[in-house]
Design a protein around this nucleic acid. Structure first.
Ligand SMILES: [Mn+2]
Ligand SMILES: [Mn+2]
Ligand SMILES: [Zn+2]
Ligand SMILES: [Zn+2]
Lengths: 138, 138
DNA sequence: GCCGCGGTTAGACAAAGTCCAATCTTTGAC
DNA sequence: GTCAAAGATTGGACTTTGTCTAACCGCGGC
């Protein structure tokens, strides 16, 4: 996943396409998420957004992350029981999780195959499959 | 995974084998975990253990779950950002997670294969691979 | 009976996240 | 451009999950 540098106009278009009003705070948060391609937790995003000049509250960060998630702009990564990480990469992919450092790395789903999954109980539909490879530094 | 009904003596032996002193509280918690084969959160275990007669504290439940986990008697399941579930099934297996009901079901690892995983960065060793199939009720 | 040690406990604490009512911004109609 | 309605933001209170601590309990060994 490339760390494309989105212009302000591109970010505005990105939000509008989802029917999201491009407020200053949402643009700042989108910028933090999409300019670097990392897996960030809410408190890290809050800190990054207010780095230069405090102007976005904790409530707005959480509101916005939930909004972006509901619109499919970002996804949640559940690997650490302590906090949720937000992933700007919404392509199907999986994760390598270093349990010592907490580092999360993408694993492309392209060349990966799972076989032998049992059939789903009737009336259920798959929402997604998440694979987490937990690694330790030797 | 069968819901074997362990006798008090079997539970005592199970704990002693791991060098764990079989106190009354630990036996109660072990009983709750191993007699039913579900994925329970700490607060559910606390409630079940104190169902008849309050005698085990929150601190002891958490102490004991962490102790059992460190000894490999149980494992944690990380699927819900809100709480950790404890799994008495320590065989390699995966999970089906119903995002609507919160229900967690085991998927045996036996007849399941993953191909195409990239090589690990040098100096890293795999601790485990967790697959979560997220399903929705149609 | 007393000691020592491991286990248990209530309650204080911490961190992640939600909620609320007051306030501020955005937006579109004019 | 003005303005009002709709929508967004905010500080701070609140909730939930989990940890920590210091006092206390209980049991085996002497
Ligand atoms: Mn700014
Ligand atoms: Mn009892
Ligand atoms: Zn990712
Ligand atoms: Zn399981």
């Amino acid at each position: 996943m490339k760390a494309k540098s989105y212009s302000r106009q591109e970010l505005i278009a990105l939000l509008r396409r989802q029917g999201i009003a491009p407020t200053h705070q949402r643009l700042e948060i989108a910028h933090v998420l999409f300019s670097r391609c990392e897996h960030l937790a809410a408190d890290q995003i809050l800190a990054l957004v207010n780095e230069r000049h405090a102007e976005t509250s904790k409530a707005t960060v959480y509101n916005t992350l939930n909004l972006f998630r509901d619109c499919g702009l970002i996804r949640e990564v559940i690997v650490d029981p302590k906090r949720v990480f937000y992933d700007p990469n919404t392509q199907p992919h999986h994760h390598l999780y270093n349990i010592d450092t907490g580092e999360i790395t993408d694993i492309p789903a392209a060349d990966l195959a799972i076989s032998g999954l049992p059939d789903l109980p009737p009336g259920m539909v798959t929402e997604g499959i998440d694979i987490v490879v937990r690694v330790r530094t030797l």
